[in-house]
Design a protein around this nucleic acid. Structure first.
Length: 431
RNA sequence: GGAACGGUGGCAGAGCGGACAAAUGCAUCCGCCUUGAAAGCGGAAGGCUCACAAGGCCCGGGGGUUCGAAUCCCUCCCGUUCCGCCA
């Protein structure tokens, strides 16, 4: 959530920042929020005046009763009773206005960072690093899509996955399954120097998914388990971010770095029918997420640290990649500043988004109510959150197939993964 | 899922219709004492809203009763123990 006080005190600043996202309807919502906030404050002031009087009267009633002045007590009670009715109706209008304000605020996106590049769509995302590790040319045997390669190798069985779970589910087997697990283990080990490993729950409450921004606006994209009022996590970002929800940390604890392997569940409501073959888009996939809680002062360098860590993983695998920065028109709702790492897949002839690293300023911290206290200072501050996919398995898996396919049809396994592959150095066609 | 008992400040724990933002202990901070520390003595100190003050709100969440609720009632959630079920 945007800070209501900022909205109140410097609406032009918020307007200008939000305008950069290029969606005029947001400015309309902003005006709605401003006028709702005025309403709420007006009602609050009136309601609190009445409450103050009721509190005062109640004390006087107590005194009167104790001294035996029952007539006086009756009189005061009558006055308090009638004020009570006014209070009740004001309290109702307060709830209504407050609820409306909250709903609008929860749906308003974050303000972009001043340095985030302007742009209207993904076509305007500037290249910031690379392309790196790009070979001079690709050979004919690399020009096969990974689903065909995997089929030859017998390591992907999506037909049976569909039998079990329906369209857009995948199933790896044999060396393919092992490769998925190896990628996760590799990503965790490479970040274990600074990140505490967490194994979070995969099902979370509505409050948890609201804190990160998936709810209420993007409910269609998440799997809901209505009977138990739980949601399947679309990313480990959700449980990691809310781990410290409602808590007040000491500044000395920051930055706090966490990482988690988890399965991720996405309905892909807006992308049904796209990328239905292979591993490019699935309802369930594995990912290792890295996460940090920080003060605003250290957040910008942490963003680069997370991005460097994600880059190191991809470079370590020897895959051709580039890094782009997300422009204001293409940014996710909670994002303040964001980078994507893309890997080139010669078989699909496409750049695949394999990692997204973002800074959320205090947008999620405020929703989750994560605060910290500075030493010797009264009061609290809202923490900043940052996260990134260290490694999203399926697309990296696909890129390995396509980049490292040999003339004989086998696929070389990157060296860094071999310890996790029981020493296997290549996957060869069966029979 | 059933039963019993619980949920109060950083922690422990009292209060069980009115003077309660809430005793007391521990921890914290500041003085005094001391060469320094400990002990001892004296004092300070919750969060949110709010430009500030005033005021309001916060005793697990929500609702109700009442002039007035931490305290009574309803409901939900969570915890502990026992039973049931079960990787």
């Amino acid at each position: 959530m945007i800070d209501v006080r900022l909205l109140r005190n410097e609406p032009h600043v918020v307007k200008a920042a939000l305008a950069r996202r290029g969606k005029p309807e947001l400015l309309v919502q902003l005006d709605t929020a401003i006028s709702l906030d005025e309403q709420v404050r007006d009602i609050t002031a009136r309601r609190d005046t009445i409450r103050a009087r009721v509190n005062e009267l109640s004390k006087l009633v107590g005194t009167a009763r104790r001294t035996g002045d029952n007539d006086e007590a009756e009189k005061l009670q009558a006055e308090s009773r009638s004020l009570g009715d006014d209070e009740k109706s004001l309290a109702e209008s307060f709830e209504t206005a407050q609820g409306q304000l909250r709903d609008v605020m929860l749906r308003l996106p974050n303000l972009p960072h001043p340095d985030a590049p302007d742009g209207a769509s993904d076509h305007d995302n500037p290249l910031v690093i690379g392309p790196n590790l790009m070979p001079a040319s690709f050979t004919e045997h690399q020009r096969m899509p990974h689903w065909e390669i995997a089929d030859e190798l017998g390591i992907l069985d999506n037909e049976r996955a569909v039998k079990l779970s329906g369209a857009m589910f995948t199933m790896q087997r044999g060396a393919g399954a092992m490769l998925s697990r190896a990628l996760c283990q590799y990503a965790l080990d490479m970040n274990a120097d600074a990140f505490e490993e967490i194994r979070p729950p995969s099902l979370v409450t509505t409050a948890t998914l609201t804190a990160t921004g998936q709810l209420p606006k993007f409910a269609e994209d998440a799997y809901a388990i209505e009977r138990d009022d739980l949601w399947c996590i679309p990313t480990a970002e959700a449980p990691l971010t809310s781990m410290y929800a409602g808590e007040v940390l000491d500044e000395a604890q920051l930055p706090l770095r966490l990482m988690a392997y988890s399965s991720c569940y996405r309905r892909e409501a807006g992308s049904a029918g796209r990328d239905t073959r292979g591993m490019l888009r699935a309802h369930e996939f594995d990912k290792v997420e890295i996460f940090a809680l920080s003060t605003p002062e250290t957040a910008d360098e942490l963003l680069i640290e997370l991005r460097d860590r994600a880059e190191r993983l991809i470079a370590g695998l020897g895959l051709p990649y580039r890094i782009i920065e997300i422009c204001t028109g293409d940014m996710g709702q909670s994002h303040h500043r964001s980078f994507d790492i893309e890997v080139y897949a010669p078989g699909c002839d496409n750049w695949l988004e394999v990692s997204s690293v973002s800074w959320f300023s205090d947008y999620q911290g405020r929703r989750a109510d994560i605060r910290y206290r500075k030493v010797g200072e009264k009061g609290t501050h809202i923490a900043n959150t940052l996260n990134g996919s260290a490694l999203a398995v399926p697309r990296v898996w696909a890129a390995i197939m396509e980049n490292f396919r040999q003339a004989d049809g086998s696929v070389i396994i990157p060296e860094v993964l071999r310890p996790y592959m029981r020493g296997m150095d290549r996957i060869s066609p069966q029979g």
